[in-house]
Amino acid sequence: MRRLIPSRNLVVGAVLTAGFAGLALISFVWTPYGVTGVDIANRLKPPGGGYVLGTDQFGRDILSMVMVGARTSIAVALIAVGIGILLGVPLGLAAAARRGGVLDEVIMRANDLIFAFPSLVIAILITAIFGPSAVNAIIAIGIFNIPVFARLVRGGAIALWQRDYVLSARVAGKGAARISAEHILPNLANLLIVQGTIQFSLGILAEAGLSYVGLGAQPPVPSWGRMLAESQTLISIAPHIALFPGLAIVLTVLGLNLLGDGLRDILDPRIRKTRR
């Protein structure tokens, strides 16, 4: 195996990402307070005291909300990236295998079509038609991940199809599907890991955006985007209820981007040589 020299980016990114993933996992078994009950007596408590990050206008504990919200954000973004990879990668492989053919044109022009629309607007359209829910948010974000992976894979695969070992496999009578699975895809794994991480962070942002306009996960399921939206009118009285979900979004996205950059430095041999 290659030496893994962790860069500072990678370590910071991995720690941030692992931290939020950890919070989300812990929230399944334990949160400091419940997130569905209303406790008017303790509303808008500042951070400190019995509530580490304070409470919101219904007296719910913000730390608990952020923890459960992480669950929603991560689940939505992860499944959306999964959709993008599951559909985009085979499409990209097929386009590369039939390069210049009709199939290639159809796949890539369809991708261009999706790319041509502003993603958030279409996501709003989808959720507006099919009703706001976490599932529809996943589908909307997932669709926009498909062309990203299809293009990435097609570009990488076309270069690999010129390799001699692919020619040897063709001489050995292997078909395009088999060559794609055995020889092309494993050699694109690095690329996919890096791009997957970056799309993951974009998915979290998109989920927060959809929830903010009320088209993501519905109440009472907590979500970072909706926490921000609900805090809007109270921001001058109790800034902490906007600050913490906002920080959660920023830090998760930052962490994933740093992780993606760090992984690229390690996994991409071209960059590895020039950067130290």
Partner: peptide
Amino acid sequence: RRKMQVVFQDPYGSFNPRH
């Protein structure tokens, strides 16, 4: 195909590095 096989020039590019 069984009757013919090929050897290419580049000893570094002729093999999938992951197998």
